[in-house]
Structure formats: structure tokens, C-alpha cells
């Protein structure tokens, strides 16, 4: 998806410094003051995590920090909301993974 550099009413976006960050091992380009969710979307990435139980892909839903769907791991810190967190230079972001369910396997076993 492209970035809206110009806007008929909101006008031109001010010059912003480009920065780079990592998502699931790949390098991406973002701009200063952009959230992780916005930067990834601008790079065509919608899936931010897999549901911990079912493994189904999930992306942003509310984009203002209410629904917790956009949680990713940032520099080792899990469950950070991508829609509220600003990208920093060299940030290492990982998508949320499906979890093994030890207790359930115990019950089935």
C-alpha cells in the first residue's frame, strides 16, 4: 500500500527521515513517528500475528489500542501493540506465534 504523501485538504506530508527496522527477520523501511502497524501496512504486510490457539492469521482491527489484535514482540518484549508503538531505528519486531497447548495435550494424552 502506498503512503499518502499529498492530500487535497490535509496538504503535503512534511519531510520525514527514513529509518529501517526488522520484522520476522526481513528488513523494512519506515519513517520517523510512524507506528509499527502503519509502517508494515505501507510495506504491504497485514498479518501481525497468528492466533495463539488456532494459529489463524490476525491483523489490526481497531487501530487505536482497544482490541489488542495487533500485538507483536518488540526487541524481545512480547505483546506490544503495533498500532500504538512508534518504530525506532533498528527495532527488531516479531509476529505473535501459535502456542503449544501443554495442558490440553495432557488431557488428550
Amino acid at each position: 500500500m502506498t503512503r499518502l504523501l499529498d492530500h487535497p485538504i490535509l496538504g503535503k506530508l512534511p519531510e520525514r527521515k527514513a529509518i529501517s527496522f526488522q520484522f520476522d527477520g526481513k528488513n523494512y523501511e519506515a519513517y520517523e513517528n510512524e507506528t509499527i502497524a502503519a509502517a508494515l501496512l505501507a510495506n504491504g504486510v497485514r498479518t501481525l500475528r497468528l492466533h495463539e490457539e488456532s494459529g489463524k492469521p490476525r491483523g489490526i482491527y481497531c487501530n487505536i489500542g482497544h482490541c489488542m489484535e495487533c500485538r507483536v514482540t518488540v526487541n524481545g518484549q512480547p505483546n506490544v501493540r503495533a498500532c500504538l508503538t512508534i518504530v525506532q531505528q533498528g527495532m527488531v519486531v516479531e509476529s505473535g506465534k501459535q502456542l503449544p497447548n501443554a495442558i490440553k495435550r495432557m488431557e488428550e494424552g
Partner: peptide
């Protein structure tokens, strides 16, 4: 729950605040 489905407010914020096309 598919990625790409969002509340309409999410599209508003992505467009007007983050200036990124939602699709």
C-alpha cells in the same frame, strides 16, 4: 478475523493520521 478487516475508525486513523493507504 482475516487481516484486512478493520473497524471503519481504524481506516480513518490509518488514512488521516498515519497517511497510509489501507488498501
Amino acid at each position: 478475523t482475516l487481516p484486512g478487516v478493520m473497524s471503519i475508525g481504524a481506516a480513518q486513523v490509518m488514512t488521516n493520521v498515519h497517511r497510509v493507504q489501507v488498501g
